[in-house]
Design a protein around this nucleic acid. Sequence first.
DNA 1: AATTAAATAGTAATCATTACTAGTTGGAAG
DNA 2: CTTCCAACTAGTAATGATTACTATTTAATT
Lengths: 121, 121
Amino acid sequence: MRSTKQRNIILDIINSSYEHLDAYGVYEKAREKIPNISLGTVYRNLNSLENAHLINVIFDGSDKLRYDRNENHQHFICTKCHKIIDIYDLDFKNVKTYQNNLVMNYKIVLEGICEECQKEE
Amino acid sequence: MRSTKQRNIILDIINSSYEHLDAYGVYEKAREKIPNISLGTVYRNLNSLENAHLINVIFDGSDKLRYDRNENHQHFICTKCHKIIDIYDLDFKNVKTYQNNLVMNYKIVLEGICEECQKEE
DNA sequence: AATTAAATAGTAATCATTACTAGTTGGAAG
DNA sequence: CTTCCAACTAGTAATGATTACTATTTAATT
């Protein structure tokens, strides 16, 4: 992965934001620095940065993905308005509520490379 | 939520399958029972069943969502081929591997209704 | 049996994301 | 420093999963 002006700016936007931006939001912020940056470039870099484990994707239940810093924390996601709240103090012994948010269920996903894909190439 | 033939069959397909079907896969299985069922009906019912917490959605990193039984278990998802593996014996003390799958990172999401949305109606 | 809101089939529309193309550039190797 | 080329970019077109729409049907209550 080469270091380009576009990629560095996109990574910086994600790392310095606490807004859980979607691709278009990143695009808008990136245009402040590079006015003619292409939306396709933003998508391509968000994907490659995610593959390189430099940023994270969040599926919030809406039709668009959101992007997040690569920092150890968890999320509460509202199933009505799709708001994302960062969690730094998760206590699994009592998760019926988190602060004043009502928790209905939780999901744990391990991500990685499966046995078959490890064998390839 | 009314009980319809279509909705009951869709719920039954999800509950009796271990394949983590996507919407089109559910549609294909549903057509075996109701040949002229509409794809829109499948999408609409998958959404309403999920809102009613009768089934679960899984985001596997691909461009389509997948649907799962509402049963307490977790998932390993391969970031290369998007394979989903059910986990019934998650041990958080050692998650560098799960069986022979290499775990790169994990995500925990609490889902529910945020403080603001609880106030509404 | 009448009523009506919710659901359906079939089709059209949306729009987030990806693909494509011609031109540009990072950075490795001489 | 120059050459070189795979990786990258801007701009635009295409894709396709999902949702919206409309006329008709139906669950289930009174």
